[in-house]
Design a protein around this nucleic acid. Sequence first.
DNA 1: CGCACCCTTCGGCCGCGGCCGAAACGTCGT
DNA 2: ACGACGTTTCGGCCGCGGCCGAAGGGTGCG
Lengths: 226, 226
Amino acid sequence: MRGDALAELAALLADRTRAEICLALLDGRAWTPGELAAHARVAPSTVSEHLNRLVAGGLLVRRTQGRHRYAQFASPGAAQLVEDLAAHADPAAERPSTLRAATAATALARGRTCYDHLAGRLGVGLADALIARGLLDDTAGFALTPAGTAWFAQELAFAPGPSRRPVARACLDWTERRSHLAGQAGAHLRTCFAERGWITGSGTGRAVRVTPQGRAALCDLLSATW
Amino acid sequence: MRGDALAELAALLADRTRAEICLALLDGRAWTPGELAAHARVAPSTVSEHLNRLVAGGLLVRRTQGRHRYAQFASPGAAQLVEDLAAHADPAAERPSTLRAATAATALARGRTCYDHLAGRLGVGLADALIARGLLDDTAGFALTPAGTAWFAQELAFAPGPSRRPVARACLDWTERRSHLAGQAGAHLRTCFAERGWITGSGTGRAVRVTPQGRAALCDLLSATW
DNA sequence: CGCACCCTTCGGCCGCGGCCGAAACGTCGT
DNA sequence: ACGACGTTTCGGCCGCGGCCGAAGGGTGCG
């Protein structure tokens, strides 16, 4: 293979600010340019240019939502690459990872929060189940069907608030590469499930675990199994 | 962790010439600056500076031998890092690797030639066995003991040639991170073993396999098992 | 012992690229 | 519709770093 390709890829991470950005993104969240600028202590315009390069290089993708343009990893492989490099660059930070991060990573992949809603395999699985039952329409983004609106109201006591925030919205999942449910309905799932004791935050991070009661309830409610 | 460390590591590979060097070194051989300069099409002085950076960064180590100063990877982990990056930079080149390179890599780690002598676990194991039997002295580099000289002459029909090349020399092994036997005696082991049918070159590369007869003979000769 | 060769260090040139501020664009909220 | 805000593009500055050629060691060979 040509060295140019390798050098080009490495150059993406060979800048302090871009490295800082990728390290921040390693938490799996999607960050806005403004957040990243504050985090890396540079001007927003600078971050914008860096994001352009990282996207062009295939490491990141952008998702535009209102006046925000979130950035996140393009693939688990890209994130993995950054993690490998970071581990080699700072072996000390790897130590606590060896066992803990491995389980933490699988826990995050299993289920986690994404801002205020549920993501990971749990989030994607929920969305799949809702679609399969005809409660969620995924033909153009995500939208609750009439049956879905009724179901949310009856089963989960959900009534859309007056906010302009969309009721249902598709949110691309980093680990699963598929969409999970965000928006008011997505946020309601999280709070409602937590109130009913169906899910618990496991550990300090954003990982989420389904309780035995939750497993039974969800199985009953959606014919879904976790 | 700080982004600086990650950026610094990535910067090592973020240059076309350095990337070319590392890619060349991926074959496990130790290259001279001159060879690398010809390979990368730059002046020797340029390569020299690049090697300085790569060594300072911990990716490479140098081994000086006569008027040559060979460069090779500092550790299997460093080589792995470059391979990971290269695979991500050029996924097409990865395809033939998936199965073949995996087995090839283990084959190389098991036994291979290093210029004209034996390396890998095979080479390191041979050196260990010779030391254990008091035939090879490793207190200051490698040197044949009187018993070793007699043993090489009797068992392997080895007589040192008139060349100025040292009879025994330690050669740092890339995969094993320990020394194997080079020099006239090391080269003789290889040719003699091959003549007797104890080893065969497996495949097109530099991988070497011990034949069943070789296994028995070596076990008999050195109480060593491969 | 001296020549030839390999490699390194040094000095200088040049271009790439990161940084910022100003200005343009689009979205949200009133 | 208008102002506020988040983001991007553009222009310009500056410094880092890759490149080479020349000069200076160290090693091997005759």
